[in-house]
Design a binder for these strands. Structure first.
Length: 426
RNA sequence: GUGGCCGUAGCUCAGCUUGGUUAGAGCGCCUGGCUGUGGCCCAGGAGGUCGGGGGUUCAAGUCCCCUCGGUCACCCCA
């Protein structure tokens, strides 16, 4: 049997209302903060990600869905949202819009890594970016959006972790210091970290190998190496979070997987996901990204939030997405007995829908009993019954499926009757 | 990319250890009891290449190998 590709899943009708409700809430929050939606393509030129994420990043090294199109171009299914958004900003001259520009997206991302619960080869992210502002207030504004959203959903066991990864001016000195620190321990590091020592010593900091972790604990801290500008920026970000009373912890060990990050780096973790896929959100500032795409210097900051993971965390904390239930449901089922009645029912069904009610009718010709059972199973609030008897008197039976009360209603009044009845006590 | 566990109807699972008649159950689905009225009950029915391929054997859902998929722990990430 044909199956969906590995690590890629269907979202079925039973779950869709939950997704719709969550997405609606995200759009509502984005609008509240003045963010406008941008829809960028799922594929970009491979270079867009190669140049921004960094050649040594895991994404570029082993996780990209890359293919050659018929014209010989190398294209890649986007592994993350930011690079494409910045590309679009540059391509469409958004630098001439009032700055900063605030953008958000809800879109699928693709990463070719090994699937696990909460980690999929195709997953959805809610993300937002502020482009054109280097101010610490921009960092805190864009990051407070998902944090407030998470609070609104009622999640309690989440932690905001904050760090600064410096910038191209001060980071090289720190990387050197790290290299110098780790070199004597070289033989005690794990295989991966020995490699990291060469290509990207920052990564050793987040290694979970106990041996490496222990050595890393004594490593110099980035905060000791930040230059005045970066330090001032970081201090102000922390001050502003404090002003908003957003609880956070400083974590000198988060460095983020993508090379384009500068200064602010943030992650949000849940304590409820068994240590596995507990990271729900990642983000930070990326002041050099636009230049890497051959654009001018456009500072930016943003985040990406994994929707599947958020859903998982909600579940783990026993929470529901507000209003998710109401996105589903059926008002009316129209049952017909006999061919003449079926035609009249078909017309009636159309009128009911035109009036704005959610209705389905019988499309085969089963017995009334089977049709009533359908109405019940589909969760219809009312059943309308049309047969020879009703037709003769130009009437229809309207049955309230909750109470079992049935009324005889003139045919031309059925739609009105249903409309008022379904708004009362729905 | 590395290692462990798992894979039998739409769903949840039994059967596998000690190979041997037509592979079962509950729920769901369809039909009937009730010739035009849902929920409860009763009866019947449909639905399975036992994830796929190869091997061992007189005989494989059951044993072995490979492969695909899921899951967990890593790597890393949302």
């Amino acid at each position: 049997m044909m199956k969906a590709p590995r690590g890629i899943h269907d979202i079925l009708p039973d779950d869709a209302p939950k997704w719709q409700a969550l997405e609606a809430l995200m759009r509502e929050f984005a609008a509240r903060y003045g963010y406008r939606e941008i829809r960028t393509p799922v594929v970009e030129h491979t270079e867009v990600f190669q140049r921004t994420s960094g050649e040594t990043s895991d994404i570029v090294e082993k996780e990209m869905y890359t293919f050659t199109d018929r014209g010989g171009r190398s294209l890649t299914l986007r592994p993350e949202g930011t690079a494409g958004v910045v590309r679009a900003y540059l391509e469409h001259g958004m630098g001439s819009l009032p700055q900063p520009v605030r953008l958000y997206y809800i879109a699928p991302m693709f990463r070719y890594d090994r699937p696990q619960k909460g980690r999929y080869r195709m997953h959805y992210q809610f993300g937002a970016e502020v482009l054109g502002s280097a101010a610490p207030a921009a960092d805190v504004e864009v990051l407070s959006l998902p944090i407030r959203l998470i609070q609104t959903l009622g999640l309690t066991e989440v932690q905001v972790r904050l760090n600064s990864v410096g910038d191209p001016v001060c980071r090289p000195a720190y990387v050197e210091a790290l290299r110098k620190y780790f070199l004597p321990y070289r033989d005690q590091l794990c295989e991966d970290c020995r490699r990291r020592l060469e290509v990207n010593p920052l990564r050793i900091l987040e290694c979970k190998e106990p041996g490496c972790h222990k050595i890393a604990a004594g490593a110099p801290r980035i905060t000791e190496y930040l230059d005045d500008a970066c330090r001032a920026h970081f201090d102000e970000v922390k001050r502003l979070f404090g002003l908003l009373r957003v609880p956070y912890v400083e974590d000198p060990f988060i460095v983020r997987g993508l090379d384009y990050y500068t200064r602010t780096a943030v992650e949000v973790h849940s304590g409820r996901l068994g240590g596995a896929q507990h990271q729900v959100l990642g983000g930070g500032r990326y002041d050099g990204l636009a230049e890497q795409l051959d654009g001018p210097h456009i500072p930016g900051v943003g985040f990406g939030l994994g929707i599947e993971r958020l859903l998982l965390v909600l579940d783990a904390e026993g929470l529901q997405v507000p209003a998710a239930a109401r996105a589903d449901g059926l008002d009316v089922f129209v049952a017909a007995v006999g061919e003449r009645a079926a035609h009249e029912a078909f017309r009636l069904l159309d009128r009911i829908r035109t009036a704005g009610l959610r209705a389905v009718g019988e499309t085969t010709d089963r017995g009334l009993r089977a049709q009533m059972k359908q109405a019940d199973r589909l969760g219809a609030r009312f059943a309308v019954i049309l047969g020879e008897q009703e037709l003769a008197g130009q009437r229809a039976g309207v049955r309230d499926m909750r109470t079992g009360m049935q009324q005889d209603v003139p045919l031309e009044q059925v739609v009105n009757h249903l409309a008022t009845a379904s708004t009362n006590g729905a």
